[in-house]
Design a binder for these strands. Structure first.
Lengths: 189, 189
DNA sequence: TGGGACAGACCAACCAGTCGGTCTCTGCCT
DNA sequence: AGGCAGAGACCGACTGGTTGGTCTGTCCCA
């Protein structure tokens, strides 16, 4: 996407564009900030809303998935254009992405220490797994598709918790709501 | 990466480059073919090597992860530059990536029908989850890092099978080797 | 009347791709 | 054997088009 395309499709002009942004890179930075702020806020809320790592993780994942619904255009543009960002901006962006990553890692570590998450699965790989599976949704998620974003989020939560929780934690009544129902009614896949 | 950089860093010339490739896009296509051929071959081998979906899935994931070790430079270049590929090449590439995706989906479907995989988790989302978590490794995997690629593969397999297998399938003796040991020896994370 | 919001012609840099030319190896004719 | 022709490998100056960014100027409101 060139600056000329941007200004023509948004109905302004080169002059107007560079009146508001120092450079094309700054626009990309602003776009990134738009959605990273959302997930960071939501993750911090989740972190302070409860003391149970399992609950926190569920909330983090659900809001993480939701961002791909709310800001799909922003995210697509970011991943398409971010390769050629100038170092000054990449650094700032990396900081925010790192602090998000660390929130997830911290939550996984807490769950492990609380004895709810299986101790034999390493926190770092699990963290990158979550980031990978959720971030990848920008490649295939279609708003208005057969599954809503909340349904997709619930499936992700089910998958992650089923592989993370210890057998005893899985039995807890208050966590049953995080698992997909395996009722008689077959899923209409 | 410009053509000028490519030829200077590889010690040839513009003329030499365009003698071997029709265009810069063709080079990218060749690079992609290099590693997609590997995973496709391995996945087909896995598919015909056994009748048990669980075993097949384990082999597919393990070889899928391994490609990021064997061809990391190829894969990084591909994801960095593939945005601006001309349609003719994107189509060809998409075909191969789709056939890989379909192998995974088929395997998941078979496991579901065989009663080994939980029927309540949808095949399509699970498939995209696997593709996402594995494909994302190109962003963080470092050859020579603290975990080998086979260890990472085993962790992925453990996570996926733990969330996919039914309780009864998890008990099967021949599948125990796919799970991380939860021995007394604490993981040195 | 002066300053912020915007317009759009313009520019320098850069890029993929071209094209005329050189160098070298091979095989064939004498 | 020696020379020669021609094909393929490779070179790099050049080009046409595109890009991010600038600059002069206009409009409008306080």
């Amino acid at each position: 996407m060139t600056v000329n395309q941007i200004v023509s499709e948004s109905g302004t002009s080169k002059g107007g564009f560079y009146h508001h942004f120092q450079s094309k890179d700054e626009l990309l930075y602003v776009i990134h900030d738009y959605f990273i702020s959302y997930v960071l806020t939501k993750a911090k809320e989740a972190d302070s809303s409860s003391k149970k790592p399992t609950e926190k993780l569920q909330k983090i994942i659900q809001s993480f998935v939701k961002v791909f619904h709310l800001y799909k255009p922003h995210i697509s543009v970011f991943y398409q254009e971010s390769m050629y960002l100038k170092p000054e901006y990449t650094e700032e962006i990396k900081k925010k992405r790192d602090s998000y990553k660390n929130l997830i890692f911290k939550c996984l570590e807490e769950g492990r220490e609380a004895g709810e998450f299986r101790p034999e699965v390493p926190v770092d790989i699990t963290g990158m797994t979550i980031l990978g599976m959720v971030n990848w949704t920008y490649k295939w998620y279609q708003p208005g598709g057969e599954k809503t974003i909340d349904e997709i989020g619930s499936i992700f939560v089910d998958l992650i918790l089923n592989s993370l929780l210890t057998d005893s934690a899985k039995q807890k009544k208050e966590y049953q709501k995080f698992f997909l129902k395996s009722g008689l009614a077959e899923d209409k896949l």
